[in-house]
Nucleic acid binder design. Structure first.
Lengths: 161, 161
DNA sequence: CATGGCAATGAACAATCTGTGCAGCGGTAT
DNA sequence: ATACCGCTGCACAGATTGTTCATTGCCATG
């Protein structure tokens, strides 16, 4: 299990130029086309690569405001709250986290004012006791995976510090 | 600006079957190939679609533990802290948020024990005063965009409630 | 109402890539 | 030594891509 150095380079290449084809990738990596195809198939079947979904920018859709909300849930209401949040389009992501049996969700909105509407909708549900919201101002490190891939495919990926 | 109904359907289609080609997409959407090509070009040039980066699963790379850490930063140390965190591969994402001039970052680790190592590395920096970590247990709503696209491309996307 | 601009259509072409199969060639584990 | 596995190179038919062009319907402007 895991990824070797070639897998790592392939992933990096795909991250840098996602629309690249198998043939071109094989040229860049200096291996046979069949090898790249086999690696790609394996990476996908083992779940390392979940897919190649388009990376859509919410801001460009008219939702430039991002926020994280920590929700305090009433005991036993977890499932209901999850179902409720799943119906809100502005909820991009939801996690249950340790702490107070709470949840953390990522929200987007059209404006700060609109964020209020979103939050009202999110917390307007019986199972939610309280919500604490933090608005994102900057995003110095956008979601990334290459550094981790590099580490995981490195010569010795011992978890050690 | 914004996306119309056809853009919306195209984005949904791409989200569902990322490896689909322009030709096949045009067949599915019932429009001419040139139209799909033009829409795609426009979506990319306007930044709605940032790219098609491979969606890599950290868990499959050997990092099954995800956590969110809220960091309290010493005044004026923001830039240094950002630079520091950018060098940590396990930091997948970093935001500056409202609250206490703090930051929120997403971390992954090989295990709960390993998470300790990661956190030590993250907070082992002069500019960071304190860190509060929440470990992710479940992820009921994985990062998604389709519902928002659907809303944004809907007949009347008035921000109103 | 007439004109100009814009987006979509349908078609055509050369060049390229994909899916697939096959035989040869190490390197490794048994 | 022997079997197994992954990589290489090659070959082929079929499908897709990048482009360009002329035509057409629709909308806003004049």
């Amino acid at each position: 299990m895991g990824v070797d150095e070639l897998d790592g380079r392939l992933l990096e290449l795909l991250a840098a130029e996602p629309r690249i084809g198998v043939l071109e990738a094989s040229r860049r990596l200096g291996v046979a086309r069949g090898t790249v195809q086999a690696r790609l198939d394996r990476l996908q079947s083992t779940g390392v690569i979940r897919g190649f979904g388009p990376d859509v920018d919410p801001a460009a859709l008219g939702y430039p405001v991002t926020a994280f909300a920590t929700l305090e849930i009433k005991q036993g209401q977890g499932a209901d709250v999850r179902a409720h949040l799943a119906t809100v389009p502005e909820v991009l992501e939801l996690h249950t986290i340790t702490g107070h049996g709470d949840m953390l969700c990522r929200l987007v909105a059209r404006s700060n004012a609109d964020l209020q509407r979103v939050i009202d909708r999110v917390v307007g549900f019986a199972g939610i006791v309280r919500a604490s919201t933090a608005i994102v101002m900057e995003n110095p490190v956008p979601l990334r995976i290459v550094p981790l891939v590099r580490k995981a495919s490195g010569p010795a990926d011992r978890g050690g510090a």
